[in-house]
Simulated assay, not measured.
Amino acid sequence: MNPESNSEPTQIAVVSGGVGAARFLAGLIDAIDELDEVDSAAAITAVVNTGDDCTLHGLSISPDLDTVTYTLAGAIDPERGWGLVDESWRAMQSLERYESVRPTGSSAAPRWFNLGDRDLATHFFRTARLAEGASLTEVTDEIRRAWQVPVRLVPMADGPVRTIVTITDEQGHAVEVSFQDYFVRLRHSVPVTSVRFEGAAELAVDARRALETAHTVVIAPSNPIVSIGPIRALPGVDHLLADRRENTVAV
């Protein structure tokens, strides 16, 4: 399997979230030799959720894309299901020094979202390439090739989409927070009343091509609201999948 090749037509397009989809894709790669209809893993394209992307420390972070990349590269931490195995956390630990001088209301140097020392390299690269004018699709493929991942990975959108969660605070008031605030900072421990998706992004060109031309579309085992939901919320996606009902399966 040649991770450099993007020339093979997509035979299976996988609508993907993070951990569940990553494990499904890993199993699909293992089973590839038994699938007569698929020539190689390079003929599989994962269309990955970016609705939980965020910016922290000035860095562009794509949690689901990175989880899929690290899993398929055999580098994921198997116990956490995210981040790199044998990771160190010195950068995050060093941020503690600045907590006493951080002004009230400042979001500088947050420690609630852990970024491992080696994981930071991915975010440095992504952020710099986006600043140079590369699209998220282009950067994602560069990262995929650097990790020698045989399956093609494409973000659902090149423009920003944000998952906004409405929670009930301690006073009983409805408050909107980002998905990462809800899931990581608040440890998904508060009542949720609604979820919406913010942003004017369209389905990325390569993502649309994969979903339109693949022989089979598979909706991977991922959270239907916050992982598959953002992809379905993009204009035209539900209509596209409905038109391909006979060739689409949800796991």
Rank of each mutant, 00 (worst) to 15 (best):
P150C: 04
V205D: 13
G83D: 06
G18I: 01
L234S: 12
T140L: 05
D158G: 08
A21N: 03
T248A: 05
Q148G: 02
L95V: 08
G229K: 09
T45G: 11
A201H: 03
P230E: 02
T71C: 09
D169A: 02
L203M: 11
S40N: 15
S178I: 01
S222Q: 02
V218L: 13
A200T: 12
H188W: 13
E8Y: 10
M92V: 13
N114S: 10
V195N: 08
R152G: 01
G17N: 08
R23N: 13
E138W: 06
R244I: 04
W89I: 10
T127D: 09
S5G: 05
E246K: 15
A26M: 01
D53Y: 01
A204C: 08
T104C: 06
I12F: 09
E8F: 09
A42S: 15
P150Q: 04
D119G: 06
D30P: 00
E4F: 08
R97C: 12
G27Q: 00
P230R: 02
G20C: 08
R97H: 15
G236K: 04
D36Q: 07
R118L: 09
V149L: 06
W112Q: 07
W82F: 14
S222M: 02
D64Q: 02
G51N: 01
T248P: 08
V226Y: 01
G83N: 07
R185C: 13
R145L: 05
V249H: 15
T248H: 07
T140A: 04
V175N: 02
P221V: 01
D36K: 07
V205E: 14
E176T: 04
V175Q: 11
S62F: 07
E37K: 10
V38W: 04
V217M: 10
D36C: 00
H57D: 15
V14N: 06
T50G: 05
T216N: 11
R232L: 15
F124E: 11
V151C: 02
I228N: 00
A201P: 07
R90T: 15
A43C: 14
Q11P: 13
I143G: 06
A128P: 00
L115H: 00
R145W: 08
E79H: 09
V48I: 14
I228P: 00
A210M: 11
A210H: 10
A41M: 11
V192K: 10
P224K: 01
H57K: 07
V237N: 10
V139S: 07
V85L: 11
V190W: 15
I76G: 00
L28A: 00
T168R: 14
H173C: 04
A108T: 11
N6G: 11
L186Q: 15
G51R: 01
G116T: 03
E87G: 08
E138P: 05
L95I: 07
T10L: 05
D117C: 06
I219E: 09
F179A: 13
S94M: 12
E176L: 00
V192T: 13
H57V: 07
T67S: 05
P235Y: 09
A46S: 11
A131M: 03
P110F: 06
M1A: 13
